[in-house]
Simulated scan of single mutants.
Amino acid sequence: MQETPFCLRAGHLLSYSMSDSNTTDFTNPSTFILLGIPGLEAAQVWISIPFCTMYTIAILGNFTILFIVKMEPSLHGPMYYFLCMLAGCDLGLSTSILPKMLSIFWFNSREIDFSACLTQMYFIHCFLEMESGILMAMALDRYVAICHPLRHSTILTNSFVAKLGLAMMLRGSLVVLPYPFLASQWPYCRTNIIPQPYCVHIAVLKLACTDTHISSYYSLFVLFCVIGVDVIFITMSYTQILRAIFSLPTKDARFKTFGTCSSHLFVILAFYIPVLFFSFTFWFSQNVPGHFYVLIASVYHLIPPMLNPIIYGVRTKQIRDRLLWLFTHKGT
C-alpha cells in the first residue's frame, strides 16, 4: 500500500491517497484528525465516564467557589480573590479540553479545523500558564500573611491584588502567543493525524516536516524560565513560611498557622508534580507506550480543575461553613 504525502502550510491541508482502490479525500482540506487515545479505541466509551465525571465536578465545584465568594462579604479578601481567579482558569482549562474529547469518545467526531486546533492549543497552554502565575501570587499572599501579618492589609490591597492578578493573566496570554503563530507557519507533509484527543503544542509540532527547533527551544524556555521561575518563587516563599511557623512557641500555634496555607500547598503539589513528570517523560523517555502517555496527560489536565475546589472546600473553614449554611438554609 503506497501513501502519497500531503502538504499543509498556514492551514491549507492537501489530501493524501493510498492505493488506486482505496483513496481518501478530505472534504475539508484544512482539518486535522484527533485519534483520541490510540490503542484504546474500543474502551473509549468507558474511559469517557470518569472523564465526564471529573468535568462535571470541576464545573460544579469551581462555579460553587465563585458563587460563595461573591455572596459572602467576609470572603472578600486577597486569598479568596486569587481563589476566584484560579477557579476561572480551571473552568477555562477543562472547557478547552473536555467537550471535544467527549465528542470523540461518544460520537467519533475526530476532525478539527486547523484554525480551531491552533485556537485550542493556545487556550490550553494559556490557562496552564495563568494557573501557574496565580499559584505564585497566592504563595505571595500566604508569605505576607504569615511572615508579615501586621502589614498584610497594607501590602495586599484590593488594587494591588487586581493588578497582580491581571499581570499573571496577561503574562499567560502573551507568553504562549508564539505557539500558534509558529505552528501556522510550518509546512506539514507527513500526516494530519494527531494521536491525542486534543491539540497541544508538542503534538502539532511533531507533524511538521521542517526544522522546528525554534518552537522546541521556545517551549523549553517557557517550561524553565516561566514555570520554573514560578516554582522557584513558590519554593522561596514556603521556605520563609516554614521558618516562621517553626519559630512559633507552641505546637498548637504552629499547627493552626500551617493550616492557613495547607490548602494552597496541596493545590501546588497537585499542579506542579504532574506537569514536571509529564514534561520530563516526554523529553527524556522514549520507551513510554503512546496510549499510557496520552491517558496520563489527559488525566493531568483535568485533575487540578477537579481537585482545587474540593481541596479548598474541605480545608478552608470559611468556605466549608458557608457551603453548609447554604444547604441547611435551603432546607429550612
Rank of each mutant, 00 (worst) to 15 (best):
D113S: 15
L91I: 09
N22D: 15
G313C: 09
Y55K: 00
E131Q: 15
P187A: 08
M79T: 04
G228C: 10
M236L: 12
H264K: 06
N28D: 15
L13N: 07
D113M: 06
L102A: 05
M168K: 03
N22F: 15
L140P: 00
F123T: 09
L75R: 04
A58H: 00
I241G: 06
F127Q: 00
F114D: 09
A58N: 07
M85T: 00
F51A: 00
I124S: 03
K256S: 13
I227Y: 02
R142T: 09
T332G: 09
Y312A: 03
I232M: 11
I49F: 14
P180K: 02
L102F: 00
R190C: 06
P99M: 07
L307R: 00
S19C: 12
T332W: 06
N28Q: 12
F123C: 05
F327N: 06
T212M: 04
G259N: 09
T23P: 05
A137H: 00
S184H: 09
H291V: 01
A203G: 03
R243D: 11
Y81G: 05
T316G: 01
L60C: 11
N287C: 04
S279D: 05
L164M: 15
W106F: 12
T95K: 02
H148V: 02
Y80N: 13
V267T: 13
G165F: 01
S48A: 13
P99F: 03
L156F: 15
G331Y: 04
V200F: 02
S21N: 11
I97D: 00
L223N: 06
S132F: 02
G36T: 01
V275D: 00
M79D: 13
W325H: 13
F26D: 13
L86A: 14
I202W: 15
L242H: 10
S159E: 05
A10R: 13
L98K: 04
F63N: 08
M306I: 03
T56F: 15
I59K: 07
L205I: 01
T24C: 13
G61H: 08
T95I: 01
F233H: 06
S103M: 13
L276K: 03
D20T: 01
S94I: 09
Q318H: 08
L323D: 03
E111W: 04
A139F: 03
S30C: 13
A87I: 01
H12C: 03
E41W: 05
T257L: 08
W106Y: 12
F278P: 00
F284T: 10
Y143G: 02
I245K: 07
V222I: 12
P78M: 02
G77S: 15
Y80E: 14
N62L: 08
T328R: 14
I202C: 05
Y143N: 11
Y16G: 11
F278A: 06
F271Q: 10
P197A: 06
N22T: 10
F292H: 12
R254F: 07
S96C: 10
S219F: 07
T260A: 04
V45N: 04
T4H: 12
L326G: 08
T95F: 01
A137L: 15
P78T: 04
E3M: 09
Y143W: 14
G36V: 05
I49G: 07
T235I: 12
F26T: 01
I202S: 15
